[in-house]
């Protein structure tokens, strides 16, 4: 019986080896070599790719990416928590409609949604046309950090709302009643009971927003105009220019940034219920 169950895992192990572990190893190999690695005889190792990354230009790119992703995550949390609370506290019938409204945009292609923002924010876009018609000065809304953050918040907020909503709706209502019974008003109950108990959801929300936000390249490219490079756009550019070795080094560094941030979040997630528990 035990052996049979073990047999069933083999296809998955092969799959993981072939499509997850091998590619990561290849990326790592690229990051520590010169040029092509097609010919094993001519392969030669170097740490120059990493050395190059740790120069002010690229450090700045990394910090900018982390800053924008962190800001987007904070905004997602600030907006998403109340939304999750409203959905969790609404009646059964309106609950499913509200949830659907939130998930519905996710069924649409992300590229399409981002293009839509371009037509809204652009110089001849919806908002500026409206302002011009009203005789007001037009604004530079597109191709700046604000537009990038807006795009990230818009695209990633469902990933913040859903895990928080799940922990809130799973919460035992009698705990809230006990808190009120013991003399805590609504605000005190929120601070002392509801929020601490929803932390696992908050943490997995943060991870699920921060991860794609720090590595995103479509949104900064379209809404940021690619003026200020971010890690995601940098990797994309390096690979399209053919510098696979440096591109791979940047990718490995980003992997470590994400790994590190998950490890940090993991320390807060006492119950190991959030997505950080995966690690």
């Amino acid at each position: 019986m035990k052996n049979k169950a073990k047999l069933l895992t083999y296809p998955y192990i092969v799959w993981m080896g072939l499509f997850i572990i091998l590619p990561v190893l290849l990326v790592f190999l690229y990051s520590i070599t010169f040029n092509e690695i097609n010919n094993i005889k001519t392969i030669s190792f170097t740490i120059n790719n990493y050395k190059m990354f740790f120069t002010p230009v690229y450090i700045q790119v990394t910090l900018r990416s982390i800053y924008l992703a962190a800001l987007s995550t904070i905004i997602c949390l600030a907006l998403g928590y109340p939304i999750a609370m409203i959905i969790a506290n609404s009646k059964m019938t309106s609950k499913s409609i509200l949830l659907l409204l939130f998930i519905l945009p996710m069924w649409m292609n992300m590229l399409l949604r981002t293009y839509a923002w371009m037509t809204i924010l652009g110089n001849n876009g919806l908002i500026n046309t409206l302002l011009a018609n009203l005789g007001l000065p037009t604004l530079n809304l597109l191709y700046n950090n604000g537009a990038v953050i807006l795009g990230m918040v818009y695209n990633f907020i469902p990933f913040m709302v859903l895990p928080i909503y799940t922990t809130l709706s799973k919460m035992d209502n009698s705990l809230i009643e006990v808190s009120e019974d013991l003399g805590a008003n609504k605000v005190q109950t929120f601070i002392k009971v509801i929020f601490p108990l929803s932390l696992p959801g908050v943490i997995s929300g943060i991870i699920m927003v921060f991860m794609p936000a720090v590595s995103s390249f479509v949104i900064p490219k379209l809404l940021g105009g690619g003026k200020d490079a971010l890690i995601g756009t940098l990797i994309e550019k390096l690979f399209s220019l053919g510098d696979w070795n440096f591109g791979s080094a940047v990718s490995i560094v980003m992997m470590f940034i994400i790994l590190l941030s998950m490890a940090v979040m993991n320390r807060f997630d006492v119950d190991k219920e959030g997505g950080a528990g995966l690690w």
Partner: peptide
């Protein structure tokens, strides 16, 4: 409830 001088022991304890 938080203004009543009454406390409750709930069915399933409901400890935090």
């Amino acid at each position: 409830p938080y203004k009543r001088q009454i406390n409750t022991v709930f069915q399933k304890y409901a400890l935090f």
